[in-house]
Simulated assay, not measured.
Amino acid sequence: TKGNVDGIIVHGPRMHDSRISLLNDIGIPYVVHGRASDAREPYSWVDVNNMHAFERATHFLLDLGHRRIGLINGQESMDFAIRRRAGFEAALGARGLVAEPRWLRSGEMSETFGHDMAREMLAAPTAPTAFLVSSMIVAIGVRRAIEELGLRMGRDVSVITHDDVLSYFRNGAEVPLFTATRSSVREAGRLSAEMLLELIATPGGPPRTRLLEAELTVGQSTGPAPGPAP
């Protein structure tokens, strides 16, 4: 470097993320917002416990009687998405169930992606009664697909999403629209910046880590699994 950068925050770590070894070689202080599961070198990070969040959300749906649960995940080259799928599969496995490949989707998180994947799965002869979704924008697309088919979210099809608590994208008013695993991306950014400043102020120390737990908030998008048609 030319000496005009004191530290770096790395966002969106992937599996096999070469940035970690590169920054270790350069020797500049850095903090990863997230984790890279396969990294062999120690590094500082701040991350939400994505595996536990989606494991807990899946158990919530299972407790409501759902057994046909679709996962609409982010791109599974991203570490957070891999951990979320692992949590989903762990909860199913704890109940003697396995994830159905026909109800698993991953891709770029957008409203259109959520709509198209949900519409495709709901049109199948055996459709999911619930979806676990990786972001609010994807969940909005899932809701649109449900309503286009004349179904009602929370009654006919349940939805749980992850909510980054973005100020411009609120999950309803007093009563949340979506049942959600909530973890503030703004707070994670603040903690990452604080950690980076500490690393800059005290060079040569060991890497620091911070694991944040998401809270599960119950909204209008979940309900008991529908019974068989009369």
Rank of each mutant, 00 (worst) to 15 (best):
R119D: 11
F60W: 12
V31H: 04
G189V: 05
M121T: 14
G107H: 10
L196F: 05
S106F: 04
I200Q: 13
L177N: 09
A91K: 10
R210W: 04
D156I: 03
R14L: 02
A91S: 14
G3C: 06
A145G: 05
H59L: 00
H11Q: 06
M78Y: 13
A201M: 07
S110V: 05
H162R: 12
G3S: 10
R85Q: 10
M153G: 06
L62M: 11
P125D: 09
I82N: 08
D25I: 07
S184C: 00
R155K: 10
A173K: 06
T202L: 11
N50H: 15
A53F: 07
L151G: 04
L149Y: 01
S135N: 15
T1K: 12
E198V: 11
G205S: 13
M153N: 12
R182D: 11
A86I: 02
R40S: 07
A145N: 00
D156H: 01
P176H: 08
M51N: 14
E120W: 00
V175P: 07
R56N: 05
L122G: 04
A81M: 04
L211M: 15
I200E: 10
R95C: 12
E111F: 05
R102I: 03
F54A: 11
L64G: 09
L104G: 01
A193H: 08
R56A: 09
S18E: 09
A145Y: 05
I200M: 15
R56S: 06
A123P: 00
F88W: 06
S158R: 02
R144H: 09
T1I: 03
Y168G: 01
L104D: 00
S183M: 13
V32K: 10
F113K: 06
R35S: 01
I137Q: 14
R14C: 01
E76T: 07
S192I: 02
G70T: 12
A81P: 00
G204N: 13
K2R: 09
L211A: 06
S184T: 00
I69V: 15
A118T: 13
L104K: 03
I69M: 05
I140H: 05
L23R: 01
R155W: 04
I137G: 03
H11K: 03
D25K: 14
L132Q: 14
R144D: 07
L191T: 08
E213F: 05
E76W: 03
T222H: 11
T222R: 05
A86E: 14
T209G: 07
A193R: 08
V5W: 02
E111L: 12
M78V: 12
R144I: 03
S134T: 11
R102D: 11
G65H: 12
A201N: 08
H33E: 14
E111K: 01
S106M: 04
V138D: 08
R67S: 15
M51D: 12
F169N: 14
D156Y: 01
R155V: 08
T179Y: 00
A94D: 10
E215S: 14
G223D: 11
L71T: 02
S44I: 00
